[in-house]
Design a protein around this nucleic acid. Structure first.
Lengths: 199, 199
DNA sequence: CAGTAACCTGACCATGCGGTCCGGTTATGA
DNA sequence: TCATAACCGGACCGCATGGTCAGGTTACTG
């Protein structure tokens, strides 16, 4: 349905190069990088970009779509994990590690433009809801925490960490731990601390 | 020192109008609004903007500077509050309420451009450090929480809340409570919940 | 190996931006 | 009231960006 004819060899290659270059560039320099820069980085003419993606937003959407899909798969695998609390935490770790500059505010905007992205987003959020629901009845998070809450807080660790100028690259883990602690029932066992360097 | 001659009446009026219009516009539509739009909203020609602020960044800096100063004052008043934990929480509430689109990542960038802003930022952060230090020895936050942590997480509540499309305007309070809970020592008394509607 | 359609390229266009400037206007104070 | 300097406005400039297109190039097919 999607491909009445397979892509030509060079076209397929360029498409991959473009997606990789764009993903890199977006992560490092934000979504404002020019299409020309992306094309140059991919070793390709600017026109080629617009041959594969009708608009710059479509290019971004394609990348976001990939990541959303990957996260959705991860979420799906965790849906039946025995420890629902650990499953939710693991999921949030993957989200934080994967999501760079693509925080939710942009995702919302992009989803309005590309209906396919909107659907993918919905699938992901549905998984989050289930993960939260299970973690709740498991007693790992407070009773009043909803899926929407976790969605809203999903990108906070990375965002907070990146707002400090010279922070270690794994600082987000610290903030994820803090926020996850804030979701726990009162008096619950705290998060197992990351292994200390020295005994 | 700053004014060898007071501003002319119309000039002063236009300056205020511009600051107000710009602050509004930035909060609602983000920092990408064009200078022309701001001028139009203030009922003023575009040239007038650049007469008062040499560059768009200077305009933004002026607004941010105002807010930073206000927050610094608030922080100063709380430095000697009897309940250090409540003081820190109160401070974070004010920050979240005041800061709209001006999250830290932009603040950092702007501070690099305008040295005065950088100094103001430093003053504010110094207050945060003291507030955190006091809250720590007061037992309201964990021993390993630093001022930098709180600075990084300062804007998270508002940011998280604003990432949900149709959220109540006070949702950030909920996320501030969650994050602040995550800062508490293990097993500490949870945050006093917002007053329930029904007795 | 040839014919062809898919593909690539970079010059080109339209647009919107920050910032400049000069002719006209207005507040001010003597 | 009048002279003047401060101020205002909006046409204008240079530049960067997203997007288009004609013409040359290249991978597939028979």
């Amino acid at each position: 349905m999607t491909s009445p004819r397979p892509l030509r060899a060079d076209a397929a290659r360029n498409r991959k190069l473009l997606l990789a270059a764009a993903a890199d560039e977006f992560d490092v320099r934000g979504l404002d990088v020019s299409v020309a820069d992306i094309a140059r980085r991919a070793g390709v003419g600017k026109g080629t970009v617009f041959r594969h993606f009708a608009t710059k937003d479509d290019l971004i959407a394609a990348i976001v779509l990939d990541r959303i899909a990957a996260l959705t798969e991860t979420g799906g695998e965790l849906l039946n994990a025995p420890d629902a609390g650990a499953a939710l935490l693991e999921f949030l770790s993957v989200v934080a590690r994967e999501m760079q500059h693509f925080d939710l505010v942009y995702l919302q905007r992009a989803a309005e433009l590309v209906p396919e992205l909107s659907r993918a987003q919905e699938r992901l959020f549905r998984h989050v809801h289930v993960l939260v629901e299970r973690a709740r009845s498991y007693g790992a998070v407070r009773a009043d925490i909803t899926g929407a809450d976790v969605v809203a807080l999903m990108c906070a660790p990375k965002h907070a960490a990146s707002s400090l100028p010279d922070a270690p690259p794994d600082l987000w883990q610290r903030y994820l731990a803090i926020i996850f602690d804030g979701l726990r029932p009162a008096g619950a066992h705290p998060l197992p601390q990351p292994p200390p360097s020295s005994p």
